[in-house]
Design a protein around this nucleic acid. Structure first.
Lengths: 328, 328
DNA sequence: ATGAAAGCGCTAACAT
DNA sequence: ATGTTAGCGCTTTCAT
């Protein structure tokens, strides 16, 4: 900035103002400054700006995996709301591991973000403490935490699966299995499995048809393998609910390879309303968890909190059951 | 740090050393300092550190879309190599738009990253200039740029499709169509289409069976719609190559809905070796572009360049044709 | 192994 | 509308 100030014959402070929109500055002065900056190949230094002004334009976000369309949608929603207001998302992946999440949160907080959104409501004790002490808005997403740290934008994974179970039972399925969600690392998957078990029990049905599909993220391939085991070990199963549409699609393909007709011989339900569930043949019954909306609402909530307008309270979304051809 | 220094009776400089691994410091002094820091709820300020030391631990990365498994794999590869060395990825999405890329690059450079990796070799003139002037390693990926700005880690999209065309022709297909890649925004998709046209012409075949599938990213649904048009408008087509596995899978489902047998009545090829291509029934013939490897090699190249060891030159990867059931 | 002084590049606060 | 002064929280550099 000093160079530009010298070149244009103004003070560094004026140069500073020229780069900040909404500052009191003569239009010609600003144009001359911006022109000089471009000629000098000047690049504004956010680091110094952030240090002096004691604020950054970072919003920290942690998600379990980068390679998941649901979380990508959430980040997309967040990003569209926050980028428009000049914020930069600082993204980290926990790989479905709370220890990794703790490390990540610690590092993200060192960058002094203005707010932080984390996926899920389960954290290490130290991570929780770090978030509590951070003195910035903390939003937990994709869950309804028993004891929220700050705010949350989520839904009940257990209730969402219960909704599908209720539907399956209502249309006549009785011997219903569940694939995935038993790895304790993926708490949302585990919640879905717990919801499945509780719902079946409430209907007086056997809730022991549980197929382990491995550690999250559960792939299409693992869904297919799990369906293979289900068909071998519990061949009288009438319907299966999978922890996600990806594993559900894998399960569907395994049925196709074995000549098992879906839904006649085996009904399949997924979770997450991924694109594939809407286009596969047959299309998959699933639950839309409003992934993008979670991001948009989180972004809006963050903006409100930063503006001191505590208008939005916590947000509990209602997942939507989508019945398609893979079940009746 | 001053607070911690006071509390432990040392100078702020010693506190600073306690947080930096590999510094000359008494073990007990360090332990006392770290303990005091934890008690005070101290969080290290990267902003100040970065300003004074004139270096950050940011590596800037731009990708067209967050919601694409191929780019996610590349970021995953980059991340695994660079996080292990303490770097933080600063990620931005261009939405397949070079103007947006320019804005993004400008903002990313303000954070003074140590290196920047961008997807593709086509940029606005100003973006190119910004990268040239940045005085940090610049890596272009997913492409072999005609005039690289700095380094590149990529492959020829045109040649990769040519390889599939050669195979299709060798096994007897003659009336071959292409879906996607006509939106000029997605330069890699356009390169694939150009490669398709050139290859067909070299075989003396008609290269006019081109179906527009809309602006990138091309979804499964758009692939299905495109296949619908292809079957209606050019019903004697024997094989189709799609710009990605996602559109190829959509095309496959459209065949299934219409009772068109794949590959007997219509062979299908995709691109990118997405998980779905390996598990769908039939499985999809595709091209593995080594997405994760692009990220890993880019990360390794960046580390070498930052260490001043110019050992790796540019990297041109060889995409691999994978023939599966959707073609013969 | 530790400390003292100086300053990274901006901008808050105040002045004109 | 513009300028002056001081300082954000660290780390470089030099000293002991």
């Amino acid at each position: 900035m000093a160079d530009i100030a010298r070149k244009t014959g103004v003070s560094p402070m004026t140069v500073s103002r020229a780069f900040k929109s909404g500052s009191l500055i003569n239009k010609e002065t600003r144009d001359a400054i911006l022109k000089a900056a471009e000629e000098l190949g000047y690049v504004f230094d956010s680091t110094a700006s952030n240090l002096r002004s004691k604020k950054t334009d970072f919003i920290a976000v942690t998600i379990p995996s980068i390679n998941n369309a649901n979380f990508a949608d959430t980040v997309g929603g967040l990003s569209s709301v926050l980028s428009a207001r000049g914020f930069q998302i600082l993204l980290g992946y926990t790989n479905y591991d709370v220890e990794e999440e703790e490390r990540l949160i610690e590092h993200l907080l060192r960058r002094k973000p203005q707010a932080i959104a984390v996926t899920g409501g389960k954290h290490t004790r130290r991570a929780r403490k770090l978030l509590e002490n951070a003195k910035i808005p903390v939003i937990e997403t994709w869950d309804v935490p028993a004891e929220p740290i700050g705010h949350f934008v989520g839904f009940s994974n257990a209730k969402a699966v219960r909704g599908m179970v209720d539907h399956f039972v209502a249309v006549g399925y009785r011997r219903i299995a569940f694939i995935g969600g038993d790895a304790s690392r993926d708490t949302r998957g585990t919640d879905r499995r717990h919801g499945f078990i509780a719902a079946l029990k409430d209907h007086g049905l056997d809730a022991s048809r549980l197929i382990d599909a491995g550690a999250p993220p559960i792939s299409m391939r693992e869904g297919a393998n799990a369906m293979g085991r289900l068909l071998t070990e519990l061949p009288d199963t009438e319907a299966v609910i999978c922890v996600s549409d990806l594993s559900a699609f894998g399960a569907l393909t395994e049925c196709q390879r074995r000549g098992v007709r879906v839904p006649d011989q085996m009904a399949i339900g997924g979770f997450g309303d991924y694109e594939i569930g809407g286009i596969s043949v047959p299309a998959l019954t699933t639950v839309n968890a409003h992934a993008r909306q979670i991001g948009e609402r989180t972004g809006a909530l963050i903006l409100d909190l930063l503006n001191g307008e505590q208008t939005i309270a916590d947000v509990t979304l209602q997942p939507q059951l989508i019945v398609r051809e893979s079940s009746r």
